[in-house]
Amino acid sequence: MDFQTVVFFFLSAILIFASLRVITARNPVHAALHLILAFFTCGGIWALLQAEFLAIAIILVYVGAVMVLFLFVVMMLDINLDRIRQGFWNYLPLGAMLGILMVLEMGLVLGSKYFQVPAADAISPAGISNTKSIGALMFTDFVYPFELASIVLLVGMIAAIVLTYRGPKKSKYTNPNQQVFVKAKDRVRVLQMPVEKD
């Protein structure tokens, strides 16, 4: 067994353990932390496959930004574990059915001959970095799907803002421009007082 295989099995073991802990950990914050570990390990496995751009991108985007905000929300939840566990047996049949369906679909994608992903040929010659070739492909061959994806993201962003916007706030609003351009003489008045003698 060469070194790369050892590293692969090591990372895979961590990945499987972390993913299992995401769904078994009692505390949601611990679950979120294990999800972060899973993303990080996934980045490691991708780096092992020499997909350095994807490896760094998953850490930059998922670990560095998405999960920070996720953790931000999860940390503020006031969680009553008993209430969460209450509906377990009611939800089990539906959950199990969905799970089995997903496993079947994954099996179809991986096993069937119709869904085979064509083996990636080494398109980029050695010496050109992974990032550069992904960028070149994205803005030439796949420019329409790329633009479409960005429009979907934009729509999602605007939709999220519209859904959470509850009208103008009734708070006392201070205009930062006026604050910045305030002069000392607007705020402080120095009065001349005659000296009191006794």
Partner: peptide, 16 residues
């Protein structure tokens, strides 16, 4: 090759 990306990824983890 992608050292700038590496730095951005690693430093973004400092917040944890």
């Amino acid at each position: 090759d992608a050292s700038l990306l590496y730095i951005m990824a690693i430093t973004s983890m400092g917040v944890y």
